[in-house]
């Protein structure tokens, strides 16, 4: 069941300012789109519009060719923002099992177990610890484990690897690769190369027009 993310004529405002204008692209199953551009060019805004957290000024975001019965495209998306969406007071396991059962799986796939997911991020065996005890990089990696425990075909990632060291970087690239291989879609805003073959959407910021390279 190949899925397609189709964006047409998208523009968005923050307050009164037009951040970007008339962006269109199509990402097919197994493809990654990297959003690049200087600070303030509207990368995060674009991703939040895609995730359905901001309403677009004009234009549409659609999921094509999906059999899933959804009322909004955001329901097929994982969104990994700047913040980890994990509670410091709870253990890693409690955090992840909450999100696993709260989010559930989208049609067409299923999430993997908690232990498996933390192993995949190289942090097996410490999921009994409170999330607050972990270092910033470890916290980020545990937040990424959310992507694995609940299945969503589309991953929307905002600066996913900012706090990671080189080894964890490579590990994450492997996970993205595997997700794409299974027919998933990844849209990521990043300054560093993600380590996977991807098309690039360069946000120019000024005049607000993005172009797909």
């Amino acid at each position: 069941m190949p899925i397609r993310l189709r964006v047409e004529g998208l523009s968005a405002k923050r307050g009164e300012d037009l951040i970007f204008h008339d962006i269109s692209f199509i990402v097919a199953a197994g493809e990654a789109l990297i959003v690049t551009g200087p600070n303030g060019s509207g990368k995060s805004t674009l991703l939040r519009v895609l995730a359905g957290l901001l309403t677009a000024e004009s234009g549409t975001v659609r999921m094509d060719d999906t059999v899933a019965d959804i009322s909004h495209p955001r329901e097929l998306c994982h969104y990994l923002g700047h913040r980890n969406a994990m509670k410091h007071e709870l253990t890693v396991e409690e955090n992840l099992s909450f999100w696993k059962s709260f989010m559930g799986d989208s049609a067409g796939g299923s999430g993997i177990g908690l232990e498996e997911a933390t192993e995949a991020l190289g942090l097996g065996g410490i999921s009994h610890l409170p999330f607050g005890y972990l270092s910033a990089g470890q916290q980020r990696r545990m937040a990424m484990a959310k992507l694995l425990v609940a299945y969503r075909p589309v991953w929307i990632l905002d600066e996913p690897t900012a706090a990671l060291d080189a080894a964890a970087d490579r590990m994450f690239a492997g996970l993205v690769e595997r997700h794409l291989g299974a027919g998933g879609i990844v849209v990521a805003a990043t300054h560093q190369p993600l380590g996977v073959a991807a098309r690039e959407l360069r946000m120019t910021g000024f005049a607000g027009v993005g172009e797909v390279v």
Binding site: E75, C77, H82, A85
Partner: peptide
């Protein structure tokens, strides 16, 4: 909202 959980809750099918 502060730790980003609200974003995920807003996105769900629930």
């Amino acid at each position: 909202r502060e730790d980003g959980s609200l974003d995920l809750m807003l996105m769900q099918e629930t």
